[in-house]
Design a protein around this nucleic acid. Structure first.
Lengths: 215, 215
DNA sequence: CTCCATTCTGTTGTATACATAATGTATGCG
DNA sequence: CGCATACATTATGTATACAACAGAATGGAG
């Protein structure tokens, strides 16, 4: 494994994050502290601390005297997220083109890996698909060279994964469409056509939003 | 007073936040938990929880086995923040103009209050100045009707306050300039000139950035 | 005198015990 | 039978005690 430093708090944090992101059933529920403590194998204290950290990821919400609530993703939130993503990605696209810093190689690599996945996604492949999808967009953002924007974008994107996993199973053959749209974006970036890139980004996000809204 | 619900954690949170935002000396230092606990009048537990919550505001950073660190604001971070603010505010400006939702009255009120402050700012007036400045920009953002963007922007802006307070004292007569620039932005919004509004926003943020960078 | 090993002190990290508030249940009344 | 109220249960919130680790002080060897 990679990070086996595993202080109790980090262990609990990783466990909870993984749990919330992969299991759609936890959404809309309150998390029981001592139950989780028993599952993870630590006391309530590090569990509580992990829950507090998850607030900054937007994955849990603290209701006083009630505990840690996992707010479900609403359609409105998804729409708003796509709008914001569009703003940030368009900005990044304009910047990397103007500065001649389009990470063509890197993004194409990611895209190729994504395209190599089977069209019928088992749970594991679906997670990999989402990871690569996230990576593709993040690579564009990161190329803009603004660390603050990168971190902001990264945190926002987490909320989308919440709904992405379950949504992927409902829509067969989406893989090809996503890859095609990504290719259009990348081609526009490489060709240096800023307007076209922004258009492609907006289109991709609009399609994604519409898919996710069928929920 | 306003919020006297004062559960220990909230009390500690409010105390720490206030402390970090107003006292420039805490930047770059580690916070001592039991010291704070004694000052606030609670035990270490709620203090620790408050510190974990402050992570989501970007005001503290947790270093394992070392504790809660208050990262100083760097020049680069300020530049990056202004860039991001520009992106978000320009987007909001375009939207509110297109949708005919410019909150002219509200923003003018804020601006008038700001202009009514004395030119020589004592500490209290400086805080009020910053509050109104923040409010002006937030009102524009909020008018765009995207709650996610509003929250995101709000959280980002907190980092600027960190440096804003001390910077204000170094620059006399900045009040008039800020108000003038705000007025230009608002006028452009009211006139429905999207390009002009974006330009005014970018100019205002660039000037602000340059002022803050003289630090 | 300098450098390194070792001890010592103070701080963070975790577990546990207790206080407090909320929810669900049972009970009595209208 | 429906509803309000009192109570029991269960969860969260807080305090305290202990464990583990990091950095500073100290002592000795070269």
């Amino acid at each position: 494994m990679s990070g086996t430093a595993a202080s109790g708090r980090e262990k609990a944090y990783a466990y909870l994050r993984e749990n919330i992101l992969t299991d759609p059933d936890v959404q809309g529920r309150f998390l029981n502290e001592q139950e989780l403590a028993a599952e993870i194998g630590v006391s309530r204290t590090p569990v509580r601390e992990a829950l507090l950290l998850l607030v900054s990821d937007g994955l849990v919400e603290l209701i006083p005297q009630r505990g840690a609530y996992v707010p479900p993703v609403t359609g409105r939130e998804m729409s708003e997220l796509m709008e914001l993503r569009g703003v940030l990605e368009s900005h990044a696209a304009r910047l990397v083109i103007d500065q001649g810093r389009v990470p063509a190689r890197t993004m194409q690599d990611t895209l190729d890996q994504q395209a190599a996945l089977p069209d019928e996604l088992n749970p594991e492949a679906a997670r990999e698909f989402i990871r690569l999808d996230t990576l593709f967009h993040q690579q564009l953002i990161d190329a803009a060279g603004n660390e603050l924007i990168s971190r902001t974008y990264s945190k926002l994107h987490v909320r989308q994964i919440l709904v992405g996993v379950s949504a992927l199973f409902r829509t067969g053959g989406r893989r090809g469409q996503v890859c095609a749209e990504h290719q259009v974006i990348l081609d526009a970036l490489v060709s240096g056509d800023s307007a076209k890139a922004q258009e492609a980004i907006d289109h991709h996000l609009a399609v994604t939003r519409d898919i996710l809204l069928r929920n």
